[in-house]
Design a protein around this nucleic acid. Structure first.
Lengths: 117, 117
DNA sequence: CCGTATCCTCAATGATACTG
DNA sequence: CAGTATCATTGAGGATACGG
């Protein structure tokens, strides 16, 4: 109850094979995570630059989503203690490996959208 | 406000390329949709069979998620008006094309899980 | 510049009971 | 068998203000 995705620890035998899928879904879940991962792929971006690039996101949500991605080992945070502070976000090696998934989602989404207009 | 994903209509120029990704994410969003799509891939499954295969899901949620997937053109519903009623769910052609995405998510999830233990 | 701290809302999900 | 109808819950997300 309350989990957004189910069955990480409690996979029944029959759905066991689905668990890594749910795991991946769980990690890219979140209103802004897809777009964040997409923007960060193959480059470092500063906090405010991210904020400006993603219209509508609040500082709070950007921080939260970045923190979760960081905790999941997908995003790296690099702080330069200059004044003013400079914080750069980028994908970890593991995070970069999400790019093909994002790419295939883009392909599918394009096909979907072309059929529904 | 209230949208789980953002920017379908309001994509700024900078994030425009991400929209199909968000669209795809939007369609597989939902606590049980990933697993439902996974189970349905390449076969038809009856309502109660789905329910039994997915531990923890309620009838209500199964119905809701199936209806949404149906509305999104990913799932087909086939009713045989026998007694008792027989309703089979399967993926549409478009829905089947999600399988590679699910598959790559499974790969990534497996790698992720192997690194975190 | 890069956040945290509060407070609040609502939509997604769940529990449970009922039905053609 | 395959749902629908209600009601309750909760946590993700948003608005806003403040801080190092």
């Amino acid at each position: 109850m309350g989990n957004r995705l189910n069955g990480f620890g409690a996979c029944s035998a029959e759905v066991e094979k689905a668990c890594p899928v749910e795991m991946t879904l769980h990690i890219i879940y979140g209103k802004w995570k897809g777009i964040i991962i997409d923007i960060l792929s193959h480059k470092s971006v500063r906090f405010n630059e991210l904020k400006r690039t993603i219209p509508g996101i609040t500082q709070r949500m950007l921080t939260l989503q970045l923190r979760e991605l960081e905790a999941d080992g997908v995003v790296k945070r690099n702080v330069e203690n200059t004044v003013p502070k400079k914080v750069e976000y980028s994908l970890t090696e593991l995070g970069e490996k999400l790019s093909p998934i994002i790419a295939s989602m883009r392909l599918w989404g394009n096909e979907y959208m072309s059929k529904n207009e």
